[in-house]
Write a protein that binds this DNA or RNA. Structure first.
Lengths: 243, 243
DNA sequence: GAGTGGTCTAGACCACTCA
DNA sequence: GAGTGGTCTAGACCACTCC
């Protein structure tokens, strides 16, 4: 490993700068699966930092599934091909980063009265107005997913944003709304006739489903989504870490 | 919140004791969604601990998606019905804890020569001997999933364990092998005729699929699984946290 | 016995939020 | 301006692994 370049005047925390450089080294192949890192104490001495700061950096990468630690032994790069972990982002971000040129087609955006099935996850009273957004996601010319989202009104005026270009999460970020936590459930079912038509699939074809409820950093529900994906074009990848 | 009972002679770390008691309070309803916790400094003073220790406890629950923090504001309980997050466990554990009396039927356990498709994820040479384990999981009398696992030989003698009663992960734990990290991919596809017969489904019915590679805390591949689930009986739940 | 990561202390300064 | 969480320091002792 090359020496680190730390910028103490940067607003980026030191532990994050360290973690970024290690992550890059792993992705680049400068650190290979099974390689041992230097000990936390040695690293702290070399970098002129305290051990807790170095430890915080390593912990970040352990949580991402890139490193494994063993007491009395040391810290090693995990023996796995590194792929991007599932993060709290939208499908739009996922595909943009994969360079696949996603497009979005708005099928409908309107204010409706919340039905009980929508009101409950959004934690509003039934009959209250909510945003209902339906979109078709395409990658190239292939339809990929049908996205259906419910949002509380009052948070943001969705019609003011270019949802086709920025995606929903990008628009929310621009409005100053940042997601903090999300719960999601992934399942499967047959395509309805309408979904099959939109996705160029046979009726009854298997679809991957995802339901997600997202919360801001005040713990309030921001968004509830029910999405269906073509399983030949999309799947969900997660890294699980024992804590 | 009631005062905490900390046991400094316990081998359980103090930060974990604190986190456990908060988690219990949230599950019990003594702490309700939106409730504010006391400040980290105040908590440290009351508990007679340093602030970093208290902070470590809170971080654990933030990572679990139970609490949200906001600088300049405070720490709150997230506005969500609390459900168990997806952890690094097996389906057997999942169902046991849900009180659903899972059963396992071993369809086959044998040593085979690794085919390339099996050798690659296990990181052994093609043709090397590996364990191949096929099981049918049932809940009550309903078939739930077909589980197919490949393991490196040499780690453990699978025939020495009662896989029907303990599950695979339980057997590995007994053999002193603990999982540290796992990567998994969830998708969907049609049932093959054989799978349909095992799962009491129609051929071509939609199935939920999961591929998982698990690593021990030396970063070595331990297990590679390809599983299919009946989507009416099982789905995958995850909590995503912005870091 | 030497070396590792796991836990913990008792402070410090800062950026941010809100009144 | 007061109070919050975010970051960072410079140590300490312990449990565990390996030789």
């Amino acid at each position: 490993m090359d020496p680190f370049a730390l910028d103490r005047s940067s607003p980026v925390p030191l532990y994050f700068q360290i973690a970024e450089q290690y992550e890059q080294a792993i992705v680049d192949g400068r650190l290979r699966p099974g390689d041992r890192l230097e000990t936390e104490v040695a690293l702290a001495r070399q970098l002129g930092l305290s051990r807790p700061t170095v430890r915080q950096a390593i912990q970040l990468l352990v949580d991402k599934g890139l490193l494994v630690r063993k007491r009395g032994v040391g810290t090693q790069v995990v023996h796995a091909q590194v792929r991007r972990a599932l993060e709290l982002t939208s499908l739009f971000d996922d595909l943009s980063r994969a360079g696949q040129a996603p497009r979005t087609q708005i099928l409908g955006l309107r204010r409706v009265s919340a039905e009980p099935a929508q009101a409950q996850p959004l934690q509003v009273a039934p009959g209250e107005p909510i945003w209902l957004l339906e979109r078709l996601r395409l990658v190239g010319d292939e339809p990929l997913a049908v996205l259906r989202n419910c949002l509380r009104t009052g948070l943001v005026d969705l019609e003011a944003f270019d949802l086709e270009r920025q995606g929903l999460y990008g628009s929310l970020r621009r409005a100053g709304i940042s997601m903090s936590v999300a719960r999601q459930r992934v399942g499967a079912r047959r395509a309805s006739p309408a979904e099959a038509a939109l996705l160029s699939e046979d009726p009854g074809a298997p679809l991957l489903t995802m339901e997600r409820t997202a919360y801001d950093n005040a713990g309030r529900v921001v968004e509830f989504g029910q999405h269906v994906y073509r399983p030949d074009l999309y799947s969900f990848e997660t890294t699980l870490v024992q804590r």
